[in-house]
Design a protein around this nucleic acid. Sequence first.
DNA 1: AATAACTTGCACACTCATGTGCAAGTTATC
DNA 2: GATAACTTGCACATGAGTGTGCAAGTTATT
Lengths: 232, 232
Amino acid sequence: MTNTSTSPHRAARAPRRDAAENRIAILDAAISELNHNPDASLETIASAAGLSRRSIYGHFSTRDELVAELNDRGIARVTAALAPIRHDDARVALALVGARLWSEVEDVRVTAQLAIRGPRREIVAEGLDPVRRGVLAIVEQGVAAGQLRTDIEPRTLARLIEGAALSVLDEAVRDDISHGEGHRLVILVALSTAGLSWREAAELIDASPELALEAQPPASSRLSERSAGARP
Amino acid sequence: MTNTSTSPHRAARAPRRDAAENRIAILDAAISELNHNPDASLETIASAAGLSRRSIYGHFSTRDELVAELNDRGIARVTAALAPIRHDDARVALALVGARLWSEVEDVRVTAQLAIRGPRREIVAEGLDPVRRGVLAIVEQGVAAGQLRTDIEPRTLARLIEGAALSVLDEAVRDDISHGEGHRLVILVALSTAGLSWREAAELIDASPELALEAQPPASSRLSERSAGARP
DNA sequence: AATAACTTGCACACTCATGTGCAAGTTATC
DNA sequence: GATAACTTGCACATGAGTGTGCAAGTTATT
C-alpha cells in the first residue's frame, strides 16, 4: 500500500501529490457510489473515480479498510458539526442539532443509514457516542428547565429526536426536497418530537434568528468538487 | 417447482400437506433470517427452516421469487391492518395508524426497511400505495377539520408521520423496548409529528379508549409459531 | 534527465452464492 | 402397500467479487 504519511525515516523521495488526489477521488467516488448502491463493487467505485480497480489497492489494502475510513470521516464530520452546539434554550439547541445534521448528512443518507444499521454499526455507534451524549445532555438540560416533555425518558427522547431528524432525510430521498425546505422540516420535526405543538414551534422559530437558514455555518465541504462520473 | 395450487385438470393426486407446511416454514425462516441479515443466503434460510437448500427450489424457483412473496405478504399484512382504520377525529386515526403499524411490523423492522428502501422499493411502493393514500386522506380530513398542523403540506406530513412511526421501530431495536412501551411511544410520536404538544397528546390519549393497548386487535399472526432454530 | 512514485492491465487463485440434474431415499395419501 | 409427492445429497456449471503478483507503462519530483 502507498504510504501517504510522512515516514520518519527512509524516505528516498516524498510521495507524489497526484497520488493523494487520487486517494481523495476514490473516497469521493465511494461516497456517492455506495450511497447509490451500498453493495457497489470496487470496480464501480474505481471507474467512478477515473481509476482502475487495481490501483485502489495501492491506497487501501482492503475493501473494508476503505469503508472504515469512510465511516471515520463521516463520524468526524458529524461530530465536528454537532459538538459546538450550545444554547440556553434546550429547544433551540435541539432544533440546531436537527439543522446541522441535515446539512451534513443530506447527501449521504443511504450510506449513513448503512453505517448506523449495517455490519459496522457497533463500531460506528462507539464513534458516535460523544454526539449522542451531547444530545442527551441537551435533553436533560431541557427537561430540568421545564422546556421539554417529561412523558418520555430522556435517553429515549434523545434517540427519538435523532431518529425523527433522520427520517426527514429519508423522506427527502423520495420527494427530492430542497435544501431550504429540508432545513425547515428537520427543525419542525425535531421540535415536535421534543413536545412542542406546531404553533409553539413556529413561535420559537420566529423568535430565534439563529435557526434561520442563513445563520447556519456552511457544511464541512466535500472532499473534492468533481461530479463523480464514470467514463467508458 | 411444486404446484401447490389446485390444478383444474390432471391431478393424479393432491399435493401433500407437509409440503405446504414446509413452504410456510421457509417463508417464516426467511423472515427472521433476513431480518437478522438482509443478505442471508438460501443455505442459512433453509437450515433455519430445518430443510436443505436444495428443497427450497422445490417451492421457489428463485431467490427473488421467495423475497417477492415475502414482500407481497408483508404488504398485504400492513394493508389489512391499516385499511379499516376510520375515525371522526383525524388525530385519533393517525395514532391508530401508528399503533397498528407498530404491532404489525415490530418484529420485521429490518426486512421492512429493506423492502421500502432496497432494490425492490419501487414495486413495494406500488403495493403500499393504497395505504399511503389512506394516510393522506386522514391527514387531509384532519387539516380540513382544523385538527392538524397546516405548516407542512399534507402529502409531506403524511410521509413524515409514517417515517416517525418507523423510526420508533428503529429505536426499539437498540433499546429492546417492550410491546407496551412501543405502543405508547409510537402513538406519542405520531401525535407529536401531527402537531400536537405533548400535553395535548396526553389529553387526547386519555380521552380515547380506542387507543389503549388492550383495545388493539391482535396482530395478524405469524405464519407458524415455531421458533426458527437451526439444528446441525 | 534520472528516478522513484504511481498506475495499469492481465493472469490467477480463492471464496461464496445461485441454480440444475439426477439418483436414492422418505412419507403422506390413495 | 402401491405410488405419487416430497426431500436430500452430491456433483457441476456459472457468475461475481476480492485480493495478489508482476511486467510495462506514465508522470511528478529532484
